[in-house]
Simulated scan of single mutants.
Amino acid sequence: MLLKSNYTAEFCAVCAKICNECAEECEKHAVMHMEHCRICAEACRRCQGTCEFLALAA
């Protein structure tokens, strides 16, 4: 039996989870007035959103 799998959707879903974890960690440091961490958190949130969109679209 051949199982149908959508590796693109799976990959993008994992990417979104990783980006979320990264953003959460960076947001903790951003509270301590570390500007570069705030910027990183924003980038991770954008990446997370894009990966979630692609996972649903795939």
Score class of each variant (00 low, 15 high):
A57D: 12
E21G: 06
E35D: 14
Y7F: 04
S5V: 13
E27R: 08
S5E: 10
K28P: 04
E52N: 12
C26L: 14
E35V: 15
C19I: 03
L56Y: 12
A16I: 07
E35K: 14
E10T: 04
V14L: 02
E25I: 13
E25H: 05
C44Q: 02
A30S: 06
T8R: 02
F11I: 01
L2F: 14
H36N: 09
I39G: 07
E21I: 10
R46M: 15
C47V: 05
L2N: 14
A58D: 08
A23C: 09
E24H: 11
A9F: 07
N20I: 10
C47D: 12
C15V: 00
A9H: 12
A16Y: 05
A43C: 03
L3S: 14
S5Y: 13
V31A: 08
V14K: 03
H36A: 03
E52L: 10
Y7H: 12
K28A: 03
E25L: 11
E10K: 06
A23M: 02
E52W: 12
A43I: 11
M32T: 15
Q48G: 00
A9Q: 02
M34D: 09
K17H: 03
A9V: 05
A9E: 01
E10Q: 01
C51F: 04
A16R: 05
S5C: 09
A16N: 08
R38Y: 00
C12G: 02
N20R: 12
A41Q: 03
I18C: 14
A41R: 08
M1K: 11
R38A: 06
N6Y: 11
A9W: 03
A58C: 09
E42H: 01
V31K: 09
S5W: 01
M34P: 00
E24K: 09
F11R: 08
I39K: 12
E27L: 06
A58Q: 00
Y7W: 03
M32N: 15
C19Q: 09
E10N: 01
E21W: 02
R46N: 15
L3Y: 11
M34R: 08
C26E: 05
A57H: 14
A41D: 04
V31E: 09
K28W: 06
A58I: 02
M34T: 02
A57I: 15
R45I: 00
M1H: 10
I39T: 08
H33K: 13
L56C: 11
F11N: 09
C37V: 01
A16H: 03
T8Y: 10
A57L: 13
M32W: 15
A55K: 09
C19W: 00
E42P: 06
E52Y: 10
A55S: 11
A9L: 07
M1Q: 13
I18K: 15
M1V: 14
L56G: 15
V31S: 08
A9P: 08
V31M: 03
M34Y: 09
K17A: 07
A13R: 05
M32Q: 15
F53S: 04
C47M: 10
F11A: 15
C22S: 05
C12R: 05
E52S: 06
T8D: 02
E21P: 05
N6L: 00
M1F: 08
F11H: 13
F53K: 10
N20C: 04
K17M: 04
A13V: 02
C15I: 08
A16M: 02
A41L: 00
A43V: 06
V14G: 07
C15Y: 04
M32C: 13
C12E: 07
H33S: 14
C12K: 00
M1P: 10
N6M: 03
C40W: 00
A9T: 06
R45M: 04
